[in-house]
Amino acid sequence: QWKVGDKCSAIWSEDGCIYPATIASIDFKRETCVVVYTGYGNREEQNLSDLLSPICE
């Protein structure tokens, strides 16, 4: 189960590419979260089910 502060990978809606991110907040009722893309600072809402394991850098 994901928690705030977890590192993950998420698909950015603008280009469909996968980027490393950190979970900033979680809404368990809606099963969504807000991620912050590492190195970019962009925030975006994602479905918890769409999150991927962190990418090894």
Rank of each mutant, 00 (worst) to 15 (best):
L52F: 10
W12M: 04
E31R: 13
S9N: 09
I11P: 01
C56V: 14
E45C: 07
E14C: 09
E44V: 03
Q46S: 02
I18P: 07
W2Y: 07
K3C: 11
N47R: 14
W12I: 08
D27W: 08
A21H: 07
G41L: 08
R30V: 10
L51K: 01
Y37F: 15
V34T: 06
Y40T: 15
G5W: 03
L52T: 02
E31D: 11
A21Q: 07
C56F: 14
R30M: 12
V35I: 12
C33N: 00
K29E: 14
Y40P: 07
N47I: 03
W12Q: 05
I26A: 01
K3G: 14
Y37N: 03
G39S: 04
S9C: 15
P54W: 09
G5C: 12
W2M: 14
D15M: 09
N42R: 14
I11T: 03
G5N: 05
I26S: 01
E31N: 13
G16M: 05
D50T: 04
I26T: 02
S9A: 13
I23S: 06
S53R: 13
F28Q: 10
T22D: 01
Y19M: 06
C17M: 14
E57F: 12
Q1H: 11
V4Y: 08
G39Q: 09
Y40E: 06
A10S: 04
R30C: 04
S13W: 10
D50C: 07
P20A: 12
V36L: 07
D6V: 04
G39N: 08
C8N: 00
F28V: 11
D15Q: 07
N42S: 12
T32W: 08
I55V: 12
P54C: 11
S49W: 09
I55R: 10
C56L: 15
V35E: 02
I18K: 02
T32Q: 02
I26W: 00
I55Q: 12
C56R: 12
K3I: 13
D27V: 01
S53P: 15
S53I: 08
G16W: 09
E45A: 06
S25N: 04
Y19H: 04
C56T: 14
E31V: 04
N47M: 08
C33M: 02
K3V: 13
S9F: 15
A24N: 05
K7F: 11
T38G: 03
T22S: 03
N42F: 15
I23C: 00
N42C: 13
W2D: 15
L52E: 03
G5S: 03
W12N: 10
D50G: 06
C17V: 01
A21R: 06
D27E: 01
E44C: 05
I26N: 04
P20H: 10
P20V: 10
W12K: 01
K3D: 14
E14M: 14
S49R: 13
P20C: 15
T32V: 10
D6L: 08
Y40N: 15
S9K: 07
L48E: 05
E57A: 15
I11S: 01
E45V: 12
Y19N: 02
L48C: 15
Y37V: 05
T32Y: 07
S13Y: 09
Q1T: 01
V34F: 05
P20E: 11
S25T: 10
R30L: 10
Y37G: 01
D50M: 06
T38V: 10
K7S: 12
S9W: 15
C17W: 01
D6S: 00
R43V: 10
G16T: 06
V36E: 13
I11F: 07
S49Q: 09
Q1V: 00
A10G: 00
I18Y: 14
G39A: 09
T38R: 03
I55S: 09
E57H: 12
L51Q: 06
D15E: 01
L48N: 06
S49H: 08
D50E: 09
G16K: 05
E14V: 15
L51T: 01
N42Q: 10
Y37L: 07
P20Q: 11
Y37A: 02
L51N: 02
E45Y: 02
L52S: 02
S25Y: 09
W2G: 15
K3M: 11
A21M: 04
E57R: 07
C33T: 00
D6F: 05
Q1E: 12
I26Y: 00
S25E: 10
G41I: 04
C17G: 10
L52C: 05
I11W: 08
N42V: 15
A21I: 11
Q46N: 05
I11L: 05
A21T: 05
A10T: 04
F28Y: 14
T32G: 04
P54K: 08
C8M: 00
F28G: 09
A24Y: 14
L48Y: 04
C8F: 01
A10Y: 06
A24Q: 10
S49G: 09
T38E: 14
E57V: 13
C56D: 15
L52W: 04
G41V: 04
I26G: 02
L51C: 05
